[in-house]
Design a protein around this nucleic acid. Structure first.
Lengths: 180, 180
DNA sequence: ACAACATCCATGACATGTCATATATTATCA
DNA sequence: TGATAATATATGACATGTCATGGATGTTGT
């Protein structure tokens, strides 16, 4: 995992390939915060990817299965409103799950544009691994942060989302908005 | 930006397409934290994309230009160690900048495998917009969070990165590691 | 009923994170 | 020195976030 930064560099490269002069104009604390958010997100995604590989699932696919488990059946647009990505219509994502046999679809009763997606038994079977994976990750996290830090960080991040569209998905997912 | 959630739903869909029953098994606060980090990252990236579009740059490309501005010349691997993405070798990313005329390359003096990348005058000219964009975003952020919240959140996020490889890039970028 | 608009979905394009692999070069060590 | 390992880079594959487009269907207002 960790690279070999501790190994002594053989002094052959001039200039050094990482520009090891102290950077001239440091980022502001805010810039650092932005990159921290990026870094934590990437790292977490890699953890998740690795753990979900056993189920042949990506993090995005696992998110869909989790959502469906709670609220199936859902249309594509209903699902899209719950996905944090809010990626318009998640056709490709859901189709990958249909192809893998985790999700199936029915026609909508009254709207011929829409389809309703739900978990197959196979899809439901993956829930165990998904939940186990999430618990494992949450175990890591709670070992690293105190309850108060978690609470405080959640609060700060919510403030950063204030007034944005993506906030709506968070609220729908986590219960602050019960209905549409 | 915001969608039409406030418009009354015409009661024709049965079941509702966003599964508007209260979700059964709420996520834990930790799950919510994970999705918050994802959501904030996505939203920030969209802001950045939008603002950088005027310069025909993506956020990733702008990050490369910023890094080069501080530490050019850099090899690909040196750059990779500073990028938060730590995406192995960022060939594609840098090549997109070479094609756009923002970055040029020289041969490395002693290592024939390596190339040294640096900003062209054109690349340096984009720095103004990039910095203005970052200041604008940081202005948003500091309007939303107090100094103490920023500090506290930074601290918590650093803890989440503890011991991971990606942390090394953060440290190199933000000065806690001066050398390789 | 008709027109205008909104919504649902599919699809293609682009960038890029991630991983695996291949090649060239360099470093290390017996 | 010669073999082995490490490193630098390029490239292809895959998934997916993001945006734009287009066709089908629904809704609304007249």
């Amino acid at each position: 995992m960790a690279d070999k930064d501790n190994a002594p560099m053989v002094a052959s490269l001039q200039p050094s390939e990482t520009g090891d002069q102290p950077p001239t104009g440091f980022g502001s604390p805010l810039q650092e915060l932005r990159y921290l958010i990026l870094a934590v997100q990437r790292e977490g995604n890699r953890w998740l990817s690795e753990m979900l590989r056993a189920a042949d699932l990506t993090p995005a696919q696992a998110e869909v299965i989790s959502i469906l488990a709670d609220r199936e059946p859902l249309t594509l647009s209903g699902l899209g409103k719950l996905l944090i990505c809010e990626t318009g219509s998640p056709s490709r994502l859901v189709n990958s799950l249909v192809q893998k046999g985790f999700v199936a679809q029915d026609n909508h009763q009254t709207d011929r544009r829409a389809k309703l997606f739900y978990l197959t038994p196979n899809g439901k079977a993956t829930l165990a691994l998904i939940h186990k994976t999430e618990e494992e990750i949450d175990g890591f996290l709670s070992a690293l942060l105190s309850d108060q830090e978690i609470k405080y960080t959640r609060s700060s991040l919510y403030k950063l989302l204030g007034g944005t569209a993506i906030e709506q998905a968070m609220l729908r997912r986590f219960g602050y908005i019960q209905n549409d």
